[in-house]
Design a protein around this nucleic acid. Structure first.
Length: 646
RNA sequence: GCCGUUGUAGCUCAGGGGUAGAGCACUUCCUUGGUAAGGAAGAGGCCAAGGGUUCAAAUCCCUUCAAUGGCUCCA
C-alpha cells in the first residue's frame, strides 16, 4: 500500500495509507471530532467524509458549523425527505432536491395523490423515524445505461430527463435505507446525524423552472443536528414575522397601499413621510459635504431618450407603455431610471478636465413594470425613489471617487446601526470578454480601482467573476440585519456604456476630446426598500434622530394641559418632533399606548413638574431618566442624536 | 405572467344557505388619575367586485380584482 500525505488547515502534515477517508483521518485525531464530521473538503472540493482519498491532498474536515457542512447536511436531508415521501405516498415521482440558503426542498409530482400543509406532521415523523435507523448514505458509480434502466423501471421520467444531460462515467447514485437517488453528492455519513426536522412550506414550482413544463409540488424543509438548534430557528422565524415591515408599517402608520391607486404603488402616511424626509435630509447633507450637486429631472422622458440609452431596446416591452401627446403623437415613458436624464444635464454645457469629477445627485422617483407576482411590501414596488447620483469622472479619478463613495455608504450604514456587512465585487468574465463593452484598458483600470478601493477601505469582500453588468464592474453591499438575515442595499457601478451612447465628452489638458467614465451609486438603493430593511432591522424602534415622533407629553390630568402645551412649543422650537396625549385616560394607559407606538421618550407632567417647571422622563422600555428641566432634556436629546450620527 | 392560499368594521380576527359578531381603535358621558390596559353608553359593515345556482347567498359555483406563499423576473 502506498502512502499519502494529508495536509490539514493548520499546515500540519500527516501520513496515511492511500484510500484512507476523511472520517478515518478525523478518528486518528479524536473520536469526538470524528462524531461531528459530516463531510470533507479535499483539495477544495466538497466530498463524502467516507470517500477514500487516493492521493496527497489538502484536507478540511467539515462540521455542521461550516457553510459547506450545512449544505451537505441539508442536501442529505432532502434525500431523507424523498425516502419518507416514497414510503408515505407510493408512486410519487421525484424532480430535484437541492439544499438552499436555509434548509432544502424537493420537487415532487404527487400524481393523483393530495399533499397539504396538514400532512407536514406526518411527513416529519416519518423522516425522523427513518433518520433514527441511522442508515449510511452509500455512493455508487453507475454507467449511464444502468442509470437509465433503474429509473425506467422505477418509472421516474424526471430523473431520466436529468440523466439525458449527463455524461457516461460521471454518474453516481446515493442510497440510504430503501431509497436510491441520482446524485452527485456529497452526503453526510448516516441519517442518524439528522435529529430535528421541520417541514416549513409548500409551493408550486415548474419542472426546471420553465412555465411550459408541468408544475410540481415543492416541499421546503429544514433540519438540524440538535433539537435545540431547531428551537432557536423557530424563535428566529417568529421574530422575523414580528419584525415584518408590512406589519410594523401598518401598526406605526408609516405607509399603506390602495387598490384604487394601484398595486405596488406605496402611499406614504404622514409619519412614514416624516421618517423618509429625515433620511433624505440626512443623506443630502452628507452628499453636499462630499461635493455632490442636487439636480431635479421630470418623471417622464421622451422615448428617444431611452432609445439613445439602450434601455428601450432592452426593457421597452416590459415597461409601462408610453403615453402619447394628443396632437403630435409623441411618445413619453415614465422614467424607469435617472441616468439618461443626468447624462443630458452633463451635456448641457461643455466640460473641461478641470471640471471633473461632476457629481449629480437626485432623489429620483422611477416607475418600473414589475410582474404582479413579484410585488412585496416596500421591498418590491412599481414606483420608488432612488437615492441616485451619477459621477462623471476622468479614468484616472475612478479609484479616488470610488473610495469616496465607499466612505459615504459606510457612513450611512454606521448611522443606521448596520454593523455587519460584506461587499460583493462583480467583475467581467475573463474568458468571455465579448459580452462586455468598453476597452480592455478601461476595464482593467476600473476593476483594479474597485478591488484596490475595497482593500484600502478594509472591506470584507467576495469577488464574483462574470457577474459584472455588460457596461461595467460593480460593487454591491450586503448587510446583515439584527436577526442575521442578509439584504442587498447600496450599490456602486462603473459604466462605460452611457457615456458612449450619449457621446459625453470633456476637453483634456491635451486639448483633445475625451470620454468620461460614469459611476452610478445609491447607498440606500431605494428609499422604499431601505425603509423596509430598516424597519425589520430595528423592529420599528428607530434611532432617535430618525423616528417620526420623538417625544410624547403625558399630562397626568387635564389640569396640566396648558403646561403641556407650553412644553410642546419649547420642544418644537428646538425642532424636536413631539406631541401631547391629551385624552382623558390614566397615566398607565397613556404609557402603554406610547410603548406600543414605540415612542422613544415620554414626558410625564403633573402637579410636581408644573410647580418645579420640570418634566419626568421615561424612556421607551421603562428606564427612568428622572426629572429635569425642558432645556436639559433638549440638550440630552441633541447629544444623543449627535452620538448616533457620528 | 403561472400555481396554491386568502379577502367579514379603521386594526386583529370569529361565524357561516334564512339578510352580521368579539376585542382594540373611534365618539360621548362618568372618573382628574403618577410610570404598560378605570367604567358606561354609542357610532361604525353592499361580509372585495360582478355574474350564476336557490323561495332565500356574506355563506355554494364561476369570473374579475387585490393581498399572500412560491416559480420565472429585477435596468
Amino acid at each position: 500500500m502506498s502512502e499519502i500525505k494529508i495536509t490539514l488547515p493548520d499546515g500540519s502534515v500527516k501520513h496515511f495509507e492511500a484510500g484512507t477517508s476523511a472520517l478515518q483521518v478525523a478518528q486518528s485525531i479524536s473520536e469526538g471530532l470524528a462524531r461531528n464530521i459530516i463531510a470533507a473538503k479535499v483539495n477544495g472540493k466538497v466530498v463524502d467524509a467516507t470517500l477514500p482519498i487516493l492521493t496527497d491532498a489538502d484536507l478540511v474536515l467539515l462540521k455542521w458549523e461550516d457553510q459547506d457542512g450545512k449544505r451537505t447536511f441539508w442536501h442529505s436531508s432532502a434525500h431523507l425527505l424523498a425516502e419518507a415521501l416514497e414510503a408515505l405516498y407510493p408512486g410519487v415521482k421525484l424532480g430535484i432536491g437541492p439544499a438552499v440558503e436555509t434548509g432544502f426542498y424537493y420537487d415532487v409530482d404527487f400524481g393523483d395523490q393530495k399533499f397539504t400543509s396538514e400532512d407536514f406532521g406526518k411527513l416529519e415523523n416519518k423522516m425522523l423515524e427513518l433518520a433514527r435507523t441511522n442508515s449510511a448514505y452509500v455512493r455508487k458509480e453507475v454507467s449511464k445505461a444502468e442509470a437509465i434502466q433503474y429509473f425506467t423501471e422505477k418509472g421516474d421520467e424526471y430523473k431520466l430527463e436529468l440523466i439525458e444531460d449527463l455524461n457516461d462515467g460521471e454518474i453516481t447514485f446515493y442510497s440510504q435505507g430503501n431509497f436510491t437517488d441520482l446524485c452527485r453528492g456529497p452526503h453526510i455519513p448516516t441519517t442518524g446525524f439528522i435529529k430535528a426536522i421541520k417541514i416549513t412550506s409548500l409551493a408550486g414550482a415548474y419542472w426546471r423552472g420553465n412555465e411550459k413544463n408541468k408544475q410540481l409540488t415543492r416541499i421546503y424543509g429544514v433540519t438540524f443536528p440538535k433539537k435545540s438548534e431547531l428551537d432557536e430557528y423557530m424563535v428566529i422565524l417568529e421574530e422575523a414575522k414580528r419584525r415584518d415591515h408590512r406589519k410594523i408599517g401598518k401598526e406605526l402608520e408609516l405607509f399603506t397601499f390602495s387598490e384604487k391607486v394601484g398595486m405596488g404603488l406605496p402611499l406614504w402616511l404622514p409619519k412614514g413621510a416624516r421618517l423618509r424626509e429625515c433620511l433624505v435630509q440626512f443623506l443630502q447633507k452628507a452628499q453636499v459635504a462630499a461635493g455632490y450637486q442636487p439636480v431635479i429631472t421630470p418623471h417622464i422622458g421622451n422615448k428617444n431618450l431611452y432609445i439613445t440609452s439602450g434601455h428601450y431596446e432592452k426593457y421597452g416591452e416590459d415597461s409601462f407603455q408610453p403615453i402619447k401627446t394628443p396632437r403630435e403623437g409623441e411618445e413619453f415613458f415614465l422614467k424607469p431610471m435617472n441616468c439618461p436624464h443626468h447624462c443630458e444635464i452633463y451635456k448641457a454645457s461643455p466640460k473641461s478636465y478641470k471640471d471633473l469629477p461632476v457629481r449629480y445627485a437626485e432623489f429620483g422617483t422611477v416607475y418600473r413594470y414589475e410582474q404582479a407576482g413579484e410585488l412585496h411590501g416596500l421591498t418590491r414596488v412599481r414606483g420608488f425613489t432612488q437615492d441616485d447620483a451619477h459621477l462623471f469622472v476622468r479614468p484616472d479619478q475612478v479609484k479616488e471617487e470610488f473610495c469616496k463613495v465607499i466612505d459615504l455608504v459606510l457612513y450611512v450604514f454606521k448611522s443606521l446601526d448596520f454593523k455587519d456587512y460584506t461587499a460583493q465585487i462583480s467583475l467581467r468574465d475573463p474568458n468571455n470578454k465579448t459580452k462586455y463593452i468598453g476597452s480592455d484598458e478601461n476595464w482593467a483600470l476600473a476593476e483594479s480601482a474597485i478591488i484596490e478601493s475595497a482593500a484600502e477601505k478594509g472591506l470584507n469582500t467576495v469577488i464574483e467573476l462574470g457577474e459584472a453588468a455588460f457596461y461595467g464592474p460593480k460593487l454591491d453591499f450586503m448587510v446583515k440585519d439584527a436577526i442575521g438575515r442578509k439584504w442587498q442595499l447600496g450599490t456602486i457601478q462603473v459604466d462605460y456604456n452611457l457615456p458612449e451612447r450619449f457621446e459625453l465628452e470633456y476637453t483634456g489638458s491635451d486639448n483633445l476630446k475625451h470620454r468620461p467614465v460614469m459611476i452610478h451609486r445609491a447607498p440606500f438603493g431605494s428609499l422604499e426598500r431601505f425603509v423596509a430593511v430598516l424597519i425589520e432591522h430595528c423592529a420599528g424602534n428607530f434611532p432617535l434622530w430618525l423616528t417620526p415622533e420623538q417625544v410624547i407629553i403625558l399630562p397626568i390630568s387635564e389640569k396640566y394641559q396648558e403646561y403641556a402645551e407650553n412644553l410642546l412649543n419649547v420642544l418644537k422650537k428646538h425642532d424636536i418632533r413631539a406631541l401631547i396625549d391629551d385624552r382623558s385616560e390614566k397615566t398607565g394607559k397613556k404609557i402603554r399606548d406610547a410603548e406600543m407606538k414605540k415612542l422613544p421618550l415620554m414626558l410625564i407632567v403633573g402637579e410636581k413638574e408644573q410647580a418645579e417647571n420640570t418634566v419626568s422622563v421615561r424612556k421607551q422600555g421603562g428606564e427612568d431618566l428622572g426629572s429635569m428641566s425642558v432645556e436639559s432634556l433638549v440638550s440630552w436629546i441633541n447629544k444623543e442624536i449627535e452620538t448616533q450620527l457620528n
